[in-house]
């Protein structure tokens, strides 16, 4: 089970924040097909938000084919976004942690590191188009 958090200063809609958090959890493998999403009542109460907002987020996930509602039971994950890369993520993460420690030892602040990562990504990774979406559909 995951727990939602809200960024009150974010410009992103509350319901969209919930959608994005589920997708993020699906990408990193925190949520897998068959897992139940938190109950609408629990999310509404914990975050003090309108239950209709939670319903709207879950409906959006259903429309995108990522979850399905089972009447009287709850909403369940039907598909993952982790793709084939998930098994490789642990190893990549270890590499990244080692690299981050080296960057820190070399005197880079967190802001320096973020800037370096972002500029390098822009320079060396091709921009991902909508083609990626259709590859994982179905």
């Amino acid at each position: 089970m995951i727990e939602f958090v809200l960024d009150g200063r974010s410009k992103v809609n509350t319901y969209m924040q919930l959608v994005q958090q589920v997708k993020q959890a699906l990408r990193v493998g925190l949520l897998a097909p068959g897992d139940q999403l938190p109950k609408v009542r629990e999310v509404a109460q914990a975050l003090a938000i309108n239950p209709n907002t939670v319903l709207k987020a879950y409906r959006e996930l259903e429309i995108e084919g990522l979850a399905e509602g089972r009447p009287g039971v709850g909403t369940f994950v039907t598909r993952t976004l982790a793709g084939a890369s998930l098994p490789n993520q642990a190893e990549l993460r270890d590499d990244l942690v080692a690299w981050l420690h080296r960057a820190q030892a070399a005197g880079l602040t967190p802001e320096d590191i973020t800037a370096l990562v972002e500029t390098t990504m822009r320079a060396s990774l091709p921009v991902e188009g909508p083609a990626r979406q259709s590859a994982s559909a179905g």
Binding site: Q45, A48, I49, N50
Partner: peptide, 12 residues
């Protein structure tokens, strides 16, 4: 916050 939490839980 606690009041609104109770209220939203009840509405749900």
């Amino acid at each position: 916050r606690e009041f609104l939490q109770t209220l939203m839980g009840s509405v749900a």
